[in-house]
């Protein structure tokens, strides 16, 4: 899932202070699971903003609501009429949600309430770990299921570097060395010899370096195009 964390309230305040009617709009999927931007955190931020407005002597209305996801229009369409009554939408969705919503709110700006961090897992409550970088060309079968792109500080394909100390990365004692883990894991799997090969320079065009990515599944979307639905819901055209 996508992991995010709340922005400091000062930063949010600087963004929103000139607006009069603000909606903190929560997203109840990934960012809710990581306690950054679900309904609960949306209400928390709204409360903090009202308190701040009162401290500053600013007349400001701050409300909150949430939907299950900001990244699919069917989830927020039913509340859009209400949402559009505000001067500003502070979305606590991940950056995907903020972008996606922003394309569909016409003249009403959508600002981010959280920092979107990474794709992560939840090893224990309240702890979130980055395990994938979405590089678009998975090599986990060659690295014992441990991703050096996401988990090595230097995204080395032929690690480890000389900075490994007691299994930890040179960046921090708190950070596992991904290559240490890879070697140990592959030893356990009996596939260490796979690591003898030098992996050639990789093609980063599948990653964000290739520009914004889009997956288009023709077999799924074909019928929608026929119906002419596409133009109705395409970004920004709904206004």
């Amino acid at each position: 899932m996508i992991v995010g964390s709340q922005k400091p309230i000062d930063e949010i305040w600087e963004m929103v202070k000139d607006f009069k009617k603000i909606l903190v709009f929560g997203c109840n999927t990934c960012v809710a699971i990581c306690h950054a931007g679900g309904d609960k955190e949306a209400e928390t931020i709204a409360t903090l903003l009202r308190m701040r407005a009162s401290q500053e002597g600013v007349d400001m209305q701050v409300d909150h609501t949430s939907v299950m996801r900001h990244c699919e229009p069917e989830y927020f369409d039913p509340v859009m009429d209400d949402v559009k009554k505000y001067d500003l939408i502070l979305s606590t969705a991940c950056g995907v949600g903020v972008n996606f919503l922003s394309d569909r709110t016409g003249i009403i700006p959508v600002y981010p309430g959280i920092n979107t961090s990474f794709y992560g897992a939840v090893p224990e409550p309240g702890v979130f770990e980055e395990l994938c970088a979405g590089c678009g060309d998975c090599i986990l079968h060659m690295t014992g299921g441990i991703c050096p792109i996401a988990r090595c500080s230097k995204t080395l394909m032929n690690g480890p570097c000389g900075g490994t100390k007691e299994g930890k990365c040179e960046v921090s004692d708190e950070m596992d060395c991904a290559w240490y883990l890879i070697v140990e894991r592959m030893k356990m799997l009996g596939t260490l010899e796979k690591l003898s090969e030098v992996l050639p320079p990789r093609d980063w065009s599948t990653s964000r370096d290739g520009g914004p990515r889009r997956v288009s599944m023709e077999h799924i979307r074909a019928y929608e195009e026929k119906e002419g639905e596409k133009t109705e819901t395409a970004g920004g055209k709904k206004e």
């Binding site: 909606l23 209400e43 409360t47 209305q61 409300d63 909150h64 609501t65 509340v79 209400d82 949402v83």
Partner: peptide
């Protein structure tokens, strides 16, 4: 002050 929620 608003009640802080636009939900019904």
């Amino acid at each position: 002050m608003s009640d802080g929620s636009i939900k019904e």
